[in-house]
Simulated scan of single mutants.
Amino acid sequence: MSLVIGEIAYTNIVPPFYCLNREELEKNGCRFVPKVPAGLNAAMKQGEVDVGGISSFAYGKEKGKYVLMPHLSVTAYGPVGSIFLFSKYPLESLEGKNIALTSASATSVHLLKVILKEFLHFTNITFTTVTPDAEKMNASFDAFLLIGDDAIRTFWKREKLGVYYYDLGQLWYEYTGFPMTYAVFAVRKEAAEEKKDMVHMLYKQFIESKKKALGPRFNDMITYIQQRHGGTEAFWRAYFRNLHYQFDEKEKEGLLYYYKLAYEHGYFERPVTDIEMWMTGNEVRDLL
């Protein structure tokens, strides 16, 4: 019996994975499989993956299937730095325009729709989901949404494209005052019960990896990311300063507000009014 862990290649989720002792985990029954965010969401839903950093929207959509690991998320209190709406027009002029949405996203797609409808009161925008490709999206649409490393690379060449750009995390924070949690660390309920020891072992390693990657191994992590993706050391240091990897009460509060608006705008079939955790605070302290 193995514990299947979905791993997204995006830079924003690197810290909880960077310092894992993969050899030990694999020796004890863990198996890592690469996924894009949308693919991980689907694989978790279908039971092909037991644990993963899934999109927050996917958790809300399939809430009854999962429990969430405490103190682990991808969250921003303001700019997230890798979720951008790029546009030929100023934000306030997008009524009646057509916007391309990346097929790699769930949380960010609905975050954009919520922002445009709830706070800017737009009612006549055409959305089209396409494969993420900045040049093609820019050629065919008035604006386009990209996430993750696609968004970062496009941000670096924004002047060449001649576009306005809007960080969705910054917009959300300005309109609501809440942080936005983009990914949560979810465990299928069956795995949490049937593979408890492996889930415990993995969780402890996630927490330890996060601490090391954002602490004594931070410089190593930055070098590793530069080698894979380019960019300057200053850019990546600033990028990770804006990201938070906790999931405590304030993060839950912001996420529940996002769920409330998503339901009110018809993106959920039922309201999501609570978040089911894998362990209580006392249980986590005892485990760690």
Score class of each variant (00 low, 15 high):
residue 77 Y to P: 02
residue 76 A to I: 02
residue 59 Y to Q: 07
residue 51 V to D: 12
residue 49 V to P: 07
residue 54 I to R: 01
residue 77 Y to N: 08
residue 49 V to F: 05
residue 43 A to I: 05
residue 79 P to Q: 00
residue 43 A to C: 12
residue 95 E to C: 08
residue 70 P to A: 10
residue 59 Y to G: 03
residue 84 F to I: 09
residue 77 Y to T: 04
residue 92 E to C: 14
residue 45 K to Q: 08
residue 63 K to A: 15
residue 93 S to G: 14
residue 59 Y to S: 08
residue 66 Y to L: 14
residue 75 T to D: 00
residue 78 G to K: 13
residue 85 L to P: 08
residue 58 A to Q: 02
residue 82 S to P: 00
residue 59 Y to D: 09
residue 65 K to T: 05
residue 96 G to S: 10
residue 76 A to Q: 03
residue 89 Y to E: 14
residue 58 A to P: 03
residue 52 G to C: 04
residue 66 Y to G: 07
residue 53 G to A: 14
residue 68 L to C: 04
residue 68 L to Y: 05
residue 71 H to I: 01
residue 50 D to W: 01
residue 48 E to A: 05
residue 50 D to S: 02
residue 93 S to Y: 11
residue 55 S to H: 05
residue 91 L to R: 03
residue 68 L to V: 02
residue 91 L to C: 11
residue 89 Y to L: 10
residue 93 S to R: 09
residue 91 L to S: 10
residue 91 L to M: 13
residue 56 S to I: 02
residue 60 G to V: 13
residue 46 Q to H: 10
residue 48 E to H: 01
residue 53 G to Q: 06
residue 61 K to A: 14
residue 73 S to L: 03
residue 45 K to D: 01
residue 49 V to K: 04
residue 95 E to A: 11
residue 65 K to H: 06
residue 61 K to Q: 14
residue 65 K to D: 06
residue 85 L to C: 12
residue 58 A to V: 01
residue 51 V to N: 04
residue 52 G to P: 01
residue 44 M to D: 01
residue 92 E to V: 11
residue 53 G to E: 06
residue 60 G to H: 09
residue 92 E to P: 10
residue 79 P to H: 00
residue 48 E to K: 06
residue 49 V to M: 03
residue 79 P to S: 00
residue 96 G to F: 13
residue 67 V to I: 07
residue 78 G to A: 12
residue 69 M to H: 02
residue 89 Y to A: 12
residue 59 Y to E: 05
residue 73 S to Y: 06
residue 86 F to S: 09
residue 44 M to A: 07
residue 74 V to W: 11
residue 57 F to K: 04
residue 86 F to R: 10
residue 70 P to C: 09
residue 51 V to F: 15
residue 45 K to Y: 01
residue 88 K to W: 09
residue 59 Y to C: 06
residue 94 L to D: 14
residue 89 Y to P: 08
residue 62 E to T: 13
residue 75 T to R: 01
residue 89 Y to S: 12
residue 80 V to N: 09
residue 61 K to D: 14
residue 94 L to Y: 15
residue 61 K to Y: 15
residue 60 G to N: 09
residue 62 E to K: 12
residue 79 P to C: 00
residue 55 S to D: 05
residue 89 Y to Q: 13
residue 92 E to A: 04
